[in-house]
């Protein structure tokens, strides 16, 4: 097969892809970072956060669900797209309750890291200050819905990697929320384990292992050491 047959351009740079690959996965595999929150290469794409939106031959679409196609012109870091991504992240911040200075995930949080990456300086929109139920019923794991961005990564990881199917999204519209798959709706009545993938893939501080926090001093946390784009660009 010739080079152009399985190549698209990402902001002008050629990216080689395999048949069936999405733009996101092809870009990541080639060491190019496209901001994302609900995507994780191990799991089936969901396409809901829209942070990964790119322009493909003039049309905006989520790169994590759009198949790569030969010769496509993909724009990712155009000013209007970066601006929109910033707005999406702002929306995720004002939708929940994120008190970063007190959060154990601070410095290791992808929402925060993507916000830094995009140069988000304020939230600009009116905060909603929702009142959401916290689930601290389990001895080892806590679910703080205040910090949940409805990305569904835990839903997919629990189902597809842990084989437990412990989570689901419920409600509609702004009332969308994570529910726990047990008769009481509480974590204590599940067989969740502190080592479950579901907890590890949570991009924010919504799903946490208890009694583990502030383990690295400020300055040595995951995204202190390396900005999120550098982490992704060096990983592949």
């Amino acid at each position: 097969m010739s080079e152009t047959k399985n190549t698209f351009t990402l902001d002008g740079q050629p990216v080689v892809f395999e048949a069936g690959q999405t733009i996101m996965n092809a870009a990541l595999a080639a060491g190019h970072y496209i901001p994302h929150l609900c995507h994780h290469r191990e799991f089936k794409p969901h396409g809901s956060c829209k942070v990964c939106t790119v322009r493909v031959n003039g049309w905006l679409s989520a790169s994590c669900t759009t198949p790569a196609s030969a010769g496509a012109k993909v724009e990712s870091e155009a000013p209007d797209i970066q601006e929109a991504r910033r707005r999406i992240v702002q929306m995720l911040f004002i939708e929940g309750n994120h008190f970063c200075p007190f959060c154990v995930k601070s410095g290791n949080c992808q929402l925060q890291a993507v916000a830094y990456h995009l140069g988000m300086e304020d939230t600009s929109l009116p905060h909603r200050f929702p009142s959401r139920a916290m689930d601290a019923s389990h001895p080892d794991v806590v679910l703080d819905r205040d910090r949940c961005i409805n990305c569904s990564l835990c839903v997919r990881a629990s189902r597809d990697a842990d084989g437990k199917d412990l989570f689901g999204l419920s409600g509609r519209g702004i009332d969308t929320h994570l529910v726990v798959n047990s008769s009481t709706g509480l974590l204590k009545d599940t067989n969740i384990d502190a080592n479950d993938r579901a907890i590890q893939v949570c991009p924010t501080g919504a799903l946490l292992v208890k009694r583990r926090g502030y383990e690295q001093p400020i300055g040595e946390r995951r995204f202190d050491a390396q900005a999120i784009e550098c982490e992704f660009e060096s990983k592949y």
Binding site: P126, N150, G173, I174
Partner: peptide, 21 residues
């Protein structure tokens, strides 16, 4: 629209609330 948004994607879920506001 704020009432009827399915809530799947961020732009519509939060955006329709902002427009309403």
């Amino acid at each position: 629209f704020a009432h009827e948004s399915c809530g799947f994607c961020t732009p519509c879920r939060v955006g329709t609330q902002m427009l309403k506001h």
